[in-house]
């Protein structure tokens, strides 16, 4: 009887430890690795048009997804956290794809580049966060 009790206590202890470990693991899992994730490739104009035509439908395809967007840079700036922000042109006069870069990269107005990042939805522009500039050679459109 005593032995059974000891075994039960030991089992309970192991289960608790396992539970704590699982909880710790889940709670501290890292953010998604954007750099290594596979991406949906699209050009900035097509992405913007998909959103301005039907936002709900576009969200089904792109929101929370890693997207590699190719387009012409129309503005480069810095946000209040010191991160580089790049606006990619669409065929709209004012709006396009607003990308916040995770790591700085030399980017100039007028050049055509590809940025890979996480799509969070549509305001006046399509918004991409945690972006990385990727080499043209790696992009297959």
């Amino acid at each position: 009887m005593k032995q059974l009790k000891a075994i039960l206590i030991a089992l309970l202890f192991i289960a608790l430890l396992g539970g704590a470990y699982a909880w710790f693991f889940v709670w501290n899992k890292p953010q998604q690795n954007i750099k290594q994730a596979s991406a949906i490739s699209i050009n900035a104009t097509d992405l913007f048009n998909a959103y301005s035509l039907n936002e709900a439908e576009a969200n089904k395809t792109y929101i929370d997804k890693v997207v590699a967007v190719t387009g012409e840079v129309s503005n480069v700036g810095t946000n209040s956290e010191g991160k580089t922000v790049v606006l990619l042109k669409s065929d709209d006069l004012m709006f396009g794809v607003n990308c916040t870069l995770e790591e700085a990269a030399p980017i100039k107005n007028g050049e055509t580049i590809t940025l890979k990042g996480l799509c969070t939805g549509f305001l006046t522009d399509v918004v991409l966060i945690r972006c990385y500039k990727i080499d043209d050679a790696k992009v297959q459109l």
Binding site: K29, P30, Q32, T120
Partner: peptide, 16 residues
């Protein structure tokens, strides 16, 4: 002001 809820970034992915 307009803001996208999915654009809020947390220190921990689980919190997000």
């Amino acid at each position: 002001f307009v803001v996208l809820i999915k654009g809020f970034q947390f220190r921990k992915a689980a919190m997000q």
